[in-house]
């Protein structure tokens, strides 16, 4: 029970930082989402020790390990658009998949090749 309480406190803290990120985005009219700004803010706060790791650790670990859970409502939303991909629209899915494959393979291969070539590898 104590662990759950701790986790809730951690998540509330993460939520406050998220809202702070949103505020920065609105005030400065940035194109980067508030959540990503919040991520950078938390990184800076951790690096400068203004926030201790122990204040967010359990909550962050739990969320990060279960990140997929938070996407489910969004991905279920595809249900409203299935008719878009009937007929010629199906070709659009294929195009997105082929392009995604090339991005994934190309960027992954290139970074791995660079790392091994320059001897950056370490395990």
């Amino acid at each position: 029970m104590e662990k759950v309480g701790k986790m809730i406190v951690h998540i509330v803290l993460l939520y406050i930082i998220f809202q702070f990120g949103n505020w920065i985005q609105r005030t400065l009219h940035l194109f980067i989402p508030g959540s990503v700004i919040g991520m950078m803010v938390l990184f800076i706060l951790l690096s400068t020790k203004l926030i201790r790791v122990s204040w967010i650790e359990e909550g962050a670990n739990y969320i990060v390990a279960n990140l997929a859970f938070f996407f489910i409502p969004v991905t279920v939303g595809i249900i409203d658009y299935y008719d878009l991909f009937l007929g010629k629209g199906a070709l659009l899915i294929l195009i997105v998949l082929v392009s995604t494959m090339l991005v994934m393979g190309g960027s992954g291969f290139f970074s791995q090749w660079l790392m091994r070539r320059k001897g950056w590898e370490h395990e």
């Binding site: 998540i11 993460l14 939520y15 930082i17 998220f18 809202q19 990120g21 949103n22 989402p33 508030g34 959540s35 990503v36 919040g38 991520m39 950078m40 803010v41 938390l42 990184f43 951790l46 690096s47 790791v53 967010i56 650790e57 909550g59 962050a60 670990n61 969320i63 990060v64 990140l67 859970f69 938070f70 996407f71 489910i72 409502p73 969004v74 279920v76 939303g77 249900i79 409203d80």
Partner: peptide
């Protein structure tokens, strides 16, 4: 879908802090 999202939007609301939490492994 809109009916499902009556609850789903609360999970969606936590997507923000979930992305913020990614700073921890980075750190």
């Amino acid at each position: 879908y809109e009916t499902y999202m009556v609850g789903g939007k609360w999970i969606n609301e936590l997507l923000g802090p979930a992305v913020v939490a990614l700073a921890y492994p980075l750190y």
